[in-house]
């Protein structure tokens, strides 16, 4: 885990993970550790952990759908000011087609659709950007504090 900026008003932590489902537990552990360090409200922490884990899961499931044995890594950056939390995800997988990012009906039980719904419920904004090199995708989630 690396601390990019650390002062009284702007905190930021970043860590990268191998792109595979077995990394999701590590993503959650990292997130919980950072939220404790940033003193994020305890009631909010597990919701945020869920949103982060769902976004990371989407990278594994969709951006690397055809590459289950990839050695690529994804990065998660959690930044916090007094007013807002910003969580950024970086990956080198298949570019996100924004029009296809939506949740599905409950009878269509593929997790990606429900996961995206969870992210929308928990976070205030979701933005897909092109990542600066070497990254391909950059997802940015924000939550007002």
């Amino acid at each position: 885990m690396s601390t990019e900026v650390s002062d009284s008003t702007n905190l930021s932590e970043k860590k990268d993970f191998l792109v595979r489902s077995s990394s999701l537990k590590d993503v959650r552990s990292f997130s919980r550790e950072v939220f404790e360090k940033f003193k994020i409200n305890e009631d909010l922490r597990e919701e945020l952990v869920l949103a982060i884990a769902e976004a990371a899961q989407n990278i594994v499931k969709h951006a690397y759908k055809d590459y289950p044995d990839t050695q690529d890594r994804m990065a998660v950056r959690i930044s916090c000011t007094d007013k807002e939390l910003e969580i950024s995800f970086f990956d080198k997988g298949k570019p996100v087609e924004k029009s296809k990012v939506k949740h599905r009906a409950i009878d269509d039980v593929k997790p990606g659709g429900l996961g995206t719904f969870f992210i929308q419920e928990i976070m205030d904004s979701i933005k897909f950007k092109e990542g600066d090199k070497p990254w391909i995708n950059n997802l940015v989630l924000t939550k007002k504090l």
Binding site: V49, A53, E54, Q57, V109, P111, G115
Partner: peptide
Amino acid sequence: QYMDSSGISVLVESNQ
């Protein structure tokens, strides 16, 4: 202690 959308999917699939 923790369940995400994958866990919910297992519950829905089990019910179906």
